[in-house]
Simulated assay, not measured.
Amino acid sequence: MAERRFGAGIRLAVTTFTVLPVPAGRIDRAAAGVAMAVAPAVGALLGLVLGGVLVGLSVAAAPAPLAGAVVVALGALLTRGLHLDGLADTVDGLGSYRDRAGALEIMKKPDVGPFGVAALVLVLLVQAAALADLAGRSPGAALAAVVVATATGRLAVTWACRRGVPAARPNGLGALVAGTVGRPALAVATAGVALAAVAAVPGRPWQGPAAVLAAVAVAVLLVAHAVRRLGGVTGDVLGAAVEVTTTVAYVGLVLG
Rank of each mutant, 00 (worst) to 15 (best):
Y250K: 04
R80K: 14
V223S: 00
L173N: 02
V181P: 07
V55G: 06
V254M: 12
A214G: 14
R229V: 04
Y97A: 14
L124S: 06
A217W: 09
A149H: 10
L125V: 15
T158M: 04
L230F: 01
Y97M: 10
V193K: 01
V19D: 00
K109N: 10
G136W: 04
A24W: 04
A128H: 01
L50V: 10
L255P: 00
L186C: 10
L46P: 00
R169K: 15
V157K: 02
L131S: 08
V233F: 02
V157T: 14
D92P: 10
V242Q: 09
P23E: 02
A217Y: 06
A69D: 13
P65K: 10
A249T: 07
W206T: 05
T150A: 11
R163H: 11
A210E: 11
A217M: 05
A214C: 12
A64P: 13
A160D: 07
V220W: 11
A145I: 08
R169S: 08
D28S: 09
L57I: 10
G56Y: 14
A61V: 06
L50N: 11
L230R: 02
K109E: 15
A178M: 11
V212D: 04
G153A: 05
A73K: 07
V70A: 15
T245H: 11
S58P: 03
R229C: 08
A145S: 14
V188C: 05
L45F: 12
A241E: 03
D133W: 07
L173G: 01
A215R: 14
T152I: 05
T245A: 14
G7C: 03
L213E: 07
L213S: 11
A194D: 07
L131F: 14
V177H: 03
A13W: 00
A214E: 11
A196L: 15
G116T: 08
T152P: 01
L125K: 01
M1Q: 04
V223D: 01
A175M: 04
G136Y: 06
A35D: 03
Y97V: 07
T79K: 01
A141Y: 01
L94P: 04
G239S: 04
L120D: 02
G56V: 10
A167E: 04
L195F: 06
F6Y: 08
E105G: 09
A8Q: 03
V237E: 03
V216I: 15
T79I: 03
G56K: 09
V22T: 14
